[in-house]
């Protein structure tokens, strides 16, 4: 196969476009990175220092931002006074739990939908996607009733099931597309080589790993950032980080330092996850597998 480099030639227009895109990227970076930067910096400032601001228009006073003694007391407070260890664990358990269940069930369902032909397949597939069309709030009340009946309200398993209900259709939808792209001949070759149907299915899992990676990230992000389910179904016993953070906003006292630290604690794992999983997201392994 030939290389996939895009051949480009320099023209005045392309030079101009290059400059324009560089300017855009810089502006975009300021727009996206600045809030995160402020969050980080504020989380290691004492409350008084955090509110030291230069006068409007006084650009030389910008140094005030960096004039502080770093402190980790907000972080320490979060985990000693506020029980954030438990909340962190709740977040991790519900996000990973639902991601794992969704990916296992979802890949099997997607595989079946991709490979098998049966009556009503299209309708079934549409029904699966359609469950994601209603907004979460619309199903919240009946779901709450069902969960209360099953004693799942305020428990981590309850939260896992709630996220799975929403992630599973999504998993099936994403992964079906990836399975469709894996030529069936590869499984056939594997069966001729001597594997069973199930082994042949496992043999092509690496080929859909970009899809599984993408789905895992989206699934974990959905659960990790979710507020609605967590505050209603997880309320009480299974508080997650976003719910706990909102709890730091009290009528008489908004604890900015802790809120910023909680923001960092919530954001950082997702950033790390993104870095780890990036490899799977960018490789298209099936390229060139099949003739023509």
């Amino acid at each position: 196969m030939a290389s996939r480099d895009i051949v480009t030639y320099r023209t005045p227009a392309s030079v101009l476009a290059g400059i324009a895109s560089a300017v855009f990227v810089v502006l975009f970076l300021i727009w996206t990175v600045l809030p995160i930067f402020i969050m980080f910096v504020s989380s290691i400032k004492d409350l008084l220092e955090a509110f030291k601001l230069p006068a409007v228009g006084d650009w030389s006073g910008i140094g005030v931002f960096f004039d502080f003694t770093p402190t980790f007391k907000h972080y320490v407070d979060l985990f000693t006074q506020e029980n954030f260890g438990t909340y962190f664990f709740n977040s991790v358990a519900s996000a990973l739990g639902s991601a794992a269940i969704s990916v296992v069930l979802g890949s099997m369902a997607a595989y079946a939908l991709s490979r098998a032909e049966f009556r009503g397949k299209k309708d079934l597939f549409f029904w699966i996607i359609s469950t994601r069309m209603a907004p979460v709030v619309a199903v919240m009340v009946p779901l709450f009733a069902i969960f209360r009946y099953g004693g799942l309200v305020g428990t981590t398993p309850g939260l896992i099931i709630a996220y799975t209900t929403f992630n599973l259709p999504f998993a099936i939808w994403i992964l079906k597309g990836f399975f469709d792209n894996v030529p069936y001949e590869i499984e056939e070759a594997s069966m001729v080589d001597g594997s069973t149907r199930l082994q042949a299915f496992k043999a092509i899992i690496p080929l859909v790993s970009p899809g599984i990676g993408a789905f895992l990230v989206l699934c974990v992000l959905f659960a990790w950032n979710d507020f609605l389910f967590a505050s209603i179904i997880g309320s009480g016993g299974a508080k997650t980080l976003p719910v706990a953070t909102s709890g730091l906003v009290q009528p008489q006292n908004i604890q900015w330092g802790k809120i910023m630290a909680a923001g960092v604690v919530t954001t950082l794992p997702m950033m790390l996850l993104g870095l780890v999983i990036r490899r799977y997201l960018v490789t298209g392994l099936t390229m060139g597998a099949v003739r023509g």
Binding site: P183, E185, I186, A189, P206, L285, T286, G288, A289, R291
Partner: peptide, 10 residues
Amino acid sequence: VFENYALYPH
């Protein structure tokens, strides 16, 4: 031997 190779790409 398959008409369209069917090699394991990974």
